[in-house]
Nucleic acid binder design. Structure first.
Length: 258
DNA sequence: ATGACTAATAGCATTAGA
């Protein structure tokens, strides 16, 4: 079996003890990290190699940044960044081959406040992502696109649709763009296994959101048709959100047949 | 009605997050 996990760590250096213990406790085959907030130079590669993981990165100073870790083997990078906007310098996409899978790790733009240039950037980025995902789909390979999508797909994916109504994460334009990805043949693995919703992957640091279970589902795992057939299980490592100095996201994972 | 909290920077206040 192969487990592919995704974890928005909200700063890899600030999160290093939590990240190391999560890797050791759950031992995913592949771990996709977002918001490492680190350049390649500052990434704690040695600490991660010391527990048996190899890393490839698309880093950036201060913000964003994505990485793919693999247990005992080095992921082979396929690309960093998306086509369609040469001026875009934000590190939000990395894609690799590992364990016979194509794995894309994404950190989709938040888009707040909306309307505005950040929301426009989000929607453009989603169209660029769609183009790449259509290319991957057309290769007919077992593939997973996972990470922080910053989209609440349905009202059942948020503790209070009313409280979040004005947020970029659940605007109709954001949801429609996400739905188009699924319409191209990708399967939302966590939604498939939780059809009634009510599963959260993010709880804000503010207003006691964790204690009140005021969360939403924005970290997703999308499977190509060739991989969806091999899906065994999905999960959210919710308990890790409640630990000391936790990220505001919990890790999510899918387990597939080898 | 508002704000709440956290991380990174080369800024000890500001930006960004979601």
């Amino acid at each position: 079996m192969i487990t592919v996990a995704s974890f928005n760590v909200n700063g890899v250096r600030a999160r290093l003890p939590r990240l190391i213990e999560w890797l050791q406790e759950t031992r995913p085959s592949v771990a996709c990290l977002q918001e490492i907030k680190s350049q390649d130079d500052g990434f704690p590669t040695a600490d991660i190699e010391a527990i048996g993981y190899r890393t490839i990165l698309h880093g950036q100073k201060g913000f964003n940044g994505v990485a793919i870790l693999a247990d005992g083997t080095a992921p082979v990078a396929v690309r960093r960044g998306l086509d369609g906007d040469p001026a875009d310098e934000q590190a939000r996409y990395i894609e690799a081959e590992v364990f016979g899978l194509r794995v894309a790790c994404i950190y989709l733009p938040n888009g707040n406040p909306q309307p505005g240039p950040k929301f426009d950037y989000k929607l453009r980025w989603m169209e660029r992502l769609r183009e790449r995902m259509r290319q991957i789909r057309d290769e007919e390979v077992p593939a997973i696109v996972t990470g922080d999508f910053n989209v609440i797909p349905e009202d059942g994916d948020v503790w209070s649709p009313a409280a979040m109504a004005g947020d970029a994460l659940m605007q109709p334009e954001s949801r429609d763009a996400y739905a188009r990805l699924l319409g191209d043949g990708w399967t939302d693995a966590i939604a498939l296994h939780n059809p009634r919703g009510g599963v959260w992957t993010f709880w804000d640091y503010q207003a006691g959101a964790w204690q009140r279970d005021h969360g939403f589902r924005i970290d997703h795992a999308l499977l190509s048709p060739e991989l969806a057939d091999r899906l065994i299980a999905t999960g959210v490592d919710k308990a890790h959100r409640g630990r000391e100095k936790a990220s505001d996201h919990a890790p999510v994972w899918v387990r597939i047949r080898s």
